[in-house]
Deep mutational scan, measured.
Amino acid sequence: VSEWTEYKTADGKTYYYNNRTWESTWEKPQ
């Protein structure tokens, strides 16, 4: 699942961004 990158927002929430599909999600990808 290497295309997903984990980021943190300014208020400390974690989200995930897909470099291949430009998708972002709050849930941890499978």
Results as ranks from 00 to 15, higher is better:
K8A: 10
W26G: 08
E3V: 01
K28N: 11
D11K: 05
K13F: 10
T9R: 01
E23K: 01
Y17S: 05
E6I: 06
T9S: 09
Y17G: 03
E3P: 04
T14K: 10
K28L: 11
T5A: 12
T25D: 01
Y17I: 15
T9Y: 07
S2R: 06
N19F: 06
S24Y: 13
W4K: 01
K8I: 04
E23A: 07
P29T: 05
W4R: 01
W22M: 15
W4L: 04
Y16R: 00
W4M: 05
D11E: 14
D11P: 00
S24N: 06
K13A: 09
W22D: 15
E3F: 09
A10S: 09
N18H: 04
A10W: 05
E27H: 11
E6G: 02
W4Y: 06
K28A: 13
S2Q: 13
P29W: 07
W26H: 07
S24T: 15
T21V: 05
T21S: 04
T9W: 04
D11I: 01
Q30Y: 05
Y17D: 01
R20K: 13
N18M: 00
G12S: 00
T25Y: 13
Y7P: 00
K28H: 11
Y15E: 08
T14H: 10
R20T: 15
N19G: 09
T9N: 11
K13R: 15
E27T: 05
Q30I: 13
T14S: 11
G12Q: 02
D11Q: 04
Q30D: 13
N18Q: 03
E27G: 06
P29K: 02
W26L: 10
Y17Q: 11
S2D: 14
E3N: 06
T9E: 04
P29R: 00
W4N: 02
K28G: 07
V1A: 13
G12V: 00
Q30G: 13
K13V: 12
N18F: 02
P29D: 10
Y7D: 03
T25I: 05
S2I: 10
W4S: 03
N18I: 01
W4I: 05
N19Y: 05
T25A: 11
P29G: 04
E3L: 08
E27Q: 06
K8H: 09
E3S: 01
Y15I: 04
T14R: 01
W4P: 02
D11G: 06
G12L: 01
W22I: 02
W26S: 09
K13D: 10
T5W: 09
W22L: 14
V1I: 09
K28D: 12
Y16M: 02
G12Y: 04
T9H: 02
E23N: 07
N19A: 08
G12I: 00
Y17R: 05
N19D: 09
N19M: 10
Y7E: 06
T14A: 02
Y17W: 08
P29I: 06
K28S: 11
P29L: 09
R20V: 10
E3T: 06
A10F: 06
E27F: 09
Y17M: 12
S2M: 11
V1K: 07
E6W: 05
W22R: 12
W22T: 14
W4D: 04
W4A: 03
T21W: 10
Y17K: 03
T9A: 06
T9L: 08
Y16D: 03
K13I: 06
Q30R: 03
T14F: 07
W26V: 02
S24A: 13
T14P: 00
S24Q: 11
R20H: 11
P29M: 08
W26P: 08
Q30M: 08
Q30F: 03
W26D: 10
T14N: 03
Q30T: 14
E27V: 13
S2K: 04
Q30L: 14
T5E: 07
T25K: 12
Y15Q: 01
V1N: 11
E27S: 09
E23Q: 03
